[in-house]
Design a protein around this nucleic acid. Structure first.
Length: 233
DNA sequence: GTCCAGGGCCGTT
DNA sequence: AACGGCCATGGA
């Protein structure tokens, strides 16, 4: 029976294979001597309630202008920034959020993400959450994929899956996160938790996109259909 | 044309 | 504490 995140992980990894998230352009950062972790932070904000294909267009625009780094975002003209990220939607508020983030990192950490991330996890999370436009999911995405900290990311897909299976948890962000983390901690070595969290979140995204869709779920070929209440209703 | 996508903020109840 | 409206684009 599939009633735990651990079982879910095992089935999804066998079905879809390793996803190796977060998708970033290593070549760009090697070439321009910029920090790839900032691309993750930018992407986490741009993808808020937005299809990743649209985020890719925005990121491409920023790369073309060599603007995928803290200093560039901090110094770029705000209306220019809005035009560059326009394909990702909500571009007015997202431009403000990117500006605010880059100014914060410039003012307090002299544009050095190694200093920013080299701190206690809980303090870092609270600081991210204090920034305008960074809520629980965006903060945890940054902590997990850019900072390598063990925070499991809860997105709309994870909530939908948790509801359909269903898992024994409320749909509150913190409750679901605790439910996943508590279970996974019991079944995997501490040293592997961060990579397990990274992989499971990526697997859930792929699974929800291809099978556990919102409107027309493809249950017929779903790898977890045997133990999903939604499939069998 | 309608629905959806790797949310978060703010005002109202 | 919980909920609704709002923000915006592009693909299915």
């Amino acid at each position: 029976m599939l009633r735990t995140p651990t079982t879910l992980y095992k089935i999804l990894i066998n079905s879809y294979g390793n996803q190796n998230w977060w998708p970033i352009d290593q070549e760009y950062h090697k070439k321009n001597n910029t920090d790839p972790r900032f691309e993750i932070m930018i992407g986490a904000i741009l993808t808020q309630n937005t299809a990743w294909t649209n985020v890719e267009k925005a990121l491409e625009n920023l790369k073309t202008k060599k603007a995928l780094d803290i200093k560039s975002i901090k110094n770029i003209n705000i209306s220019t920034l809005k035009k560059l990220i326009q394909p990702s939607g909500y571009y007015n508020q997202k431009a403000d959020r990117l500006k605010n983030l880059s100014e914060h990192l410039n003012n307090k950490y002299n544009n050095d993400l190694s200093i920013f991330f080299n701190r206690k996890q809980s303090e870092l999370r609270n600081e991210l959450l204090s920034l305008n436009g960074i809520g629980s999911e965006t903060a945890d995405s940054i902590l997990l994929y850019a900072g390598d900290f063990p925070y499991f990311v809860i997105d709309a897909y994870t909530k939908r899956l948790s509801q359909r299976i269903p898992f024994n948890t409320s749909l509150n962000y913190d409750d679901i996160q605790l439910f996943f983390q508590d279970n996974l901690k019991k079944n995997f070595p501490t040293s592997t938790l961060t990579s397990i969290y990274k992989e499971l979140h990526a697997l859930i995204v792929v699974h929800a996109k291809t099978r556990c869709k919102k409107k027309k779920p493809v249950c017929i070929t779903c790898p977890i259909r045997k133990s999903c209440a939604y499939t069998n209703e």
